[in-house]
């Protein structure tokens, strides 16, 4: 009789401990950030009036530079995704315990990928900016590094999850390593890989539109300069363009997913 009582006591305590932890964390955060939600609520009308005054009407500047900037944004995202896809696709086989020739290598690859992934794209961009100066190149490289980290990890996850049953069947037919990989495992993981690739493109479009703020090229740079110059109307125009770009890509990837990954 004692055991169940102890367990239920622990469970009750667990709930209370979690609740306490949440209160402490949120309370601490509120104090630290000097965040007063009520005050914000009352300042809402100020915010709205500022918002309307500054950002409306949105002005669209269709200069060649701005249009080029849009294309650069898209180009950086695509180029980074493709390059990362090719490299990560290859690395994922070396990085998964199930297909790698060396377990140490696999762990090393996963560690490096984690570092690439967990440092935010813009921080990479900034580091690159300090090394190489401003330009589209560093935007591309920053996106490439974080995409590499993201895709390698995601691909390895998919690879590990590739049904072990298929592997069994493959071994039972007497197929050698390369045949198993290309004829059994690859067809099984391609849908997953494509899914991650599409997600990565969406993420990159977002990142690429703001990487300009720390020295990468693209529309982020334009936006940032407008804001710094207090040209909020023009900034609003750019923001709308960014939103449209992101939405457009979301629609396209949704469509592609439907067609390929049914």
């Amino acid at each position: 009789m004692k055991e169940p009582k102890l367990k239920s006591l622990c469970r009750k305590f667990k709930k209370r401990i979690v609740l306490l932890a949440v209160i402490v964390i949120v309370g601490g955060a509120t104090w630290f950030a000097r965040f007063n939600p009520l005050a914000i609520f009352f300042e809402m009308d100020t915010f709205i009036s500022f918002f309307i005054k500054d950002f409306f009407p949105p002005q669209f500047v269709f200069q060649a530079e701005n249009i080029r900037a849009l294309f650069v944004t898209v180009a950086m995202a695509f180029a980074a995704s493709m390059t990362a896809f090719l490299i990560a696709g290859f690395l994922s086989f070396l990085g998964s315990d199930t297909t790698s020739p060396s377990l140490i290598l696999a762990r090393g690859i996963r560690a490096v990928a984690s570092v690439f992934r967990n440092v935010p794209t813009l921080v990479w961009a900034f580091i690159l900016f300090m090394s190489f100066g401003i330009g589209e190149t560093i935007g591309f490289l920053a996106l490439l590094i974080s995409s590499l980290g993201f895709l390698t990890r995601a691909f390895i996850e998919t690879l590990d999850a590739a049904a072990p049953e298929i592997r069994e069947a493959a071994v039972a037919t007497g197929a050698t390593y390369w045949k198993r990989v290309f004829c059994f495992i690859l067809p099984d993981i391609i849908p997953g890989y494509i899914s991650w690739l599409l997600y990565n493109v969406e993420l990159n479009i977002r990142s690429s539109s703001i990487v300009g703020m720390v020295g990468g090229g693209g529309i982020g740079l334009v936006l940032f300069s407008y804001i710094k110059m207090y040209r909020y109307g023009k900034a609003a125009g750019i923001i709308i363009q960014i939103a449209l770009l992101v939405i457009a890509f979301e629609c396209v990837t949704k469509n592609i997913r439907k067609r390929i990954l049914s």
Binding site: T46, F50, F51, D54, R206, S209, E250
Partner: peptide, 17 residues
């Protein structure tokens, strides 16, 4: 709302508040 990157939202708020 989701289509506008978080950073851009913050810039907007910074400009206003």
């Amino acid at each position: 709302i989701r289509a506008i990157p978080t950073t851009v939202w913050v810039l907007i708020i910074l400009a206003c508040l």
